[in-house]
Design a protein around this nucleic acid. Structure first.
Lengths: 333, 333
DNA sequence: GAAATAATTGTAAACGTTTACTATTATTTG
DNA sequence: CAAATAATAGTAAACGTTTACAATTATTTC
C-alpha cells in the first residue's frame, strides 16, 4: 500500500541497499544517484518506516514517561521539560498516567518495555521501592523523578525537600511567627516527610517558636483536604499563626478555610505552600511558596536518561541530582 | 540478548509458530502444550516485541496526540481524557507539544507517521486548514479538536463556541449590565471569533445594551494580555460594566487590572471567562465562566478516532460532534 | 480396523528496514 | 597501460514476530 524502499529502488533502477544508503546520507553512494533517489522518494511521498528500522536497529528513539496525573498542576511543566529535551535529541515520548495507582504504573512499565522504549522516566506513585522495581531498573535505563529516596538503585532527580521545608520555616520565623503548623499530604509520602523534617529543624532552631504535635496534620494532596484540616483546627480553636502546607493545592484550601472563618491571611495567619504551581501566581491567589523547579526537573531527567541510553549498559552509572528550592514571596506570608 | 519466541520454542521443544499461537491464545494449540509454553515464557521473563509484531500486523496500537502546550491549563484535562480512553482500548499515546507553531506541528505529524501511529488527534495551532493538512487526513485517521471550523475534511470535536458566547452575554444582560465589553485572544483564532459572534448576538437582542467597537479588543491568550488590555481601557476611562473574556486566563488578568484600579468585581464590573480551567475555581479566584467540556472532548476524540481506526479506509466517515457549553456561576459575575 | 475427519504442530514466507560482505566499475599510479 | 586502489553498487542475512499452508498425529465413524 504505502511506498517502501523497494518501490523506490525499482523506479530508480538500483538495489534497495543503495536506496537505504542514499536516504540515510551514508557515504559511499554516488552524488548523482543519491540526488535522483531523493527526488524519486519525495515525489512518491515516501515515509520511512520507523518500526522496521527499530526492529533492526533495536532502538526506537522513544521514551516512556509515567506520571501520576497530568491533570495535577505539578506535572504539566515537568512533562513539558521532558518533552522539550527529548524532542531536541530526537526522541518521542509516550505519556502514561498511573493515576497514583502502583498496579497501573506497573502495567504501564510492562507495556512500555514491550513497545521497546529506549528508556523510562518515572514519577512514582508510591515512595517505597520494591524488589520488582529494582528488577525493572536492570532491564532498561530508568530515571526517577520527584519524591524518591536516595539509594533507589537508579538515577533520579529530586528537589531538596528538607531544605525547602527549612527555608519555609525560617522565613515564617523571621516574620515573627511563633505558633507554627504543618499540614501535609499523605503521611507515608517521602516528600511530605522530608518537607516536614526541614520545617521541624527550622522550628527547633528557635526557642521562642513552637510546632506542637497537634498542629502537625496529614491528609492527601488535594485542595479539599487542606480546607477540611484547617477548618477543623479553627473549629477546635487550635489556631496557629503560620501554616506551611506541603503543597500549593493544600495551601489554597487552607487559605480558603481561614478566610471563610473571618480571619485574614497573612495578617492573622501566614500561609506558605510548596511547588509554585502556575495557579499560585494567579490573580487573587498570590501565594507565597517554595519554588520546585518542575520544568528543569523534567528537562534534566530526560537529559540524564538520554545520556544513559547512549552508553553501553555496563558503562551506565547512576546519578542523583538534587535541585535547589527557592522562596517565592508573594502575599500570603 | 533478550528472550525471543525462538528461545522459548527451543526450550519447549516445539516450533516457534506454536509458541506464537500459544502466547496469543489462538485456538488450535493443545492445552497442555500451551500451559507448558506459558510457564516457560514467564520463567524466562519473556516480553513480546511489539515492534516486530507491529511490523507484520501493520498496526502499532499507538496514537499521536499533538496539542499546542500541555502547560496551558486547558490541555491537561483534554490529554487525560484522550489517555484514559486510549488506555481502555489498548492504545498508547505519543504526546507532542507544537508550541503554537505550525511548522513544528507539521514536523510532528510527519514524525508520527514515520513511527506508524494508527491515528492522530490534533488540536491545531492555527485555525486555517491548508491543502497540506487535507493531504495528511487522507493518509491516516485524524480527529481534530477545539477551535476547528466545520468542513475541515476530517472528524472533529468542538464546543459550541457561539452558544457559549451567547450564554455569557445573556447572563450578563439578565444581571442588568448595559455596557458590555469583549476581550479576545488572537483575532484570527476561530474560537475567539465564534465566541464573539455569540456574545454579539446576545448584545444585539437587547436594545438597552451596548457593545461598542471600542470595547471589543484582541490580544493573545495569556493572563498578561488580559491585564494590559483592561488596564488601558480603564486608563482611557472607557469603562464597561461587564466584560466577557474569551478564556479564563485572560479573565483573570482582566480581574487583576480592575481590582488594581480600585474597582470591584463584580460590583462595579462583572467578569466572565471561558473554559472553566481548574484554577478558575481555586480559592480566591472564584471565576464565573463557561464550562468547556475538556475531558469529555479528549475522551470523545479518542473514541471517534479508535472507531475510525477499526474501519477500512473506505468505510471511514467524518463525524463532527459539537459539545454543549454550560454556564458556571461563581463570584465574578 | 480402515477411512474419514478433527486437532495439533511445523515450514516458510512476509513485514520494511539496515548492514556486513562481495562484486563491479572507475580512477589513480608508476 | 597494467596493476593497484578507491568509489560505488549489489546480495543476502538479520531483526522478532504472525500466519497461510502443509504435514503430522489423534480421534471418530461405520
Amino acid at each position: 500500500m504505502t511506498v517502501t524502499i523497494k518501490d523506490i529502488a525499482e523506479k530508480a533502477g538500483v538495489s534497495y541497499a543503495t536506496v537505504s544508503r542514499a536516504l540515510n546520507y551514508k557515504y559511499g553512494v554516488n552524488p548523482s544517484t543519491r540526488r535522483q533517489i531523493l527526488e524519486i522518494a519525495s515525489s512518491m511521498n515516501y515515509s520511512p518506516n520507523a518500526i522496521a528500522r527499530g526492529l533492526v536497529k533495536k532502538q526506537t528513539h522513544t521514551i516512556g514517561l509515567i506520571i501520576p496525573d497530568i491533570t495535577n498542576p505539578f506535572f504539566p511543566e515537568v512533562a513539558r521539560g521532558v518533552e522539550d529535551m527529548s524532542e531536541k535529541m530526537g526522541y518521542s515520548i509516550f505519556l502514561c498516567n498511573s493515576n497514583w495507582d502502583k498496579t497501573k504504573e506497573n502495567r504501564y512499565v510492562k507495556l512500555l518495555i514491550e513497545k521497546r522504549v529506549d528508556g523510562l522516566i518515572l514519577a512514582p506513585s508510591a515512595s517505597v521501592i520494591t524488589e520488582e522495581d529494582r528488577q525493572i531498573y536492570s532491564r532498561l535505563p530508568v530515571v526517577l523523578m520527584s519524591g524518591v529516596q536516595s539509594g533507589s538503585g537508579t538515577s533520579s532527580v529530586v528537589v531538596d525537600n528538607v531544605k525547602g521545608g527549612y527555608i519555609a520555616g525560617k522565613y515564617l520565623i523571621e516574620k515573627g511567627r511563633k505558633k507554627l503548623c504543618y499540614i501535609g499530604g499523605a503521611e507515608d509520602s517521602f516528600s511530605v516527610k522530608e518537607r516536614f523534617e526541614g520545617f521541624f529543624q527550622a522550628a527547633e532552631s528557635s526557642i521562642s517558636v513552637s510546632l506542637s504535635p497537634d498542629l502537625v496534620k496529614f491528609g492527601d494532596y488535594r485542595q479539599k483536604s487542606g480546607y477540611r484540616i484547617m477548618k477543623e483546627l479553627l473549629e477546635n480553636r487550635n489556631i496557629p499563626d503560620a501554616v506551611f502546607a506541603s503543597n500549593d493545592l493544600l495551601a489554597i484550601g487552607v487559605i480558603q478555610a481561614i478566610r471563610a472563618s473571618g480571619l485574614k491571611v497573612p495578617e492573622d495567619i501566614s500561609v506558605i505552600g510548596f511547588d509554585n504551581i502556575a495557579a499560585a501566581g494567579f490573580g487573587e491567589v498570590e501565594l507565597t511558596t517554595i519554588e520546585h523547579p518542575k520544568y528543569r526537573m523534567g528537562e534534566l531527567a530526560a537529559g540524564i536518561l538520554l545520556e544513559k541510553i547512549d552508553l553501553k549498559p555496563e558503562m551506565q552509572e547512576n546519578k542523583r541530582v538534587v535541585l535547589e528550592p527557592e522562596l517565592i514571596i508573594r502575599r500570603t506570608a
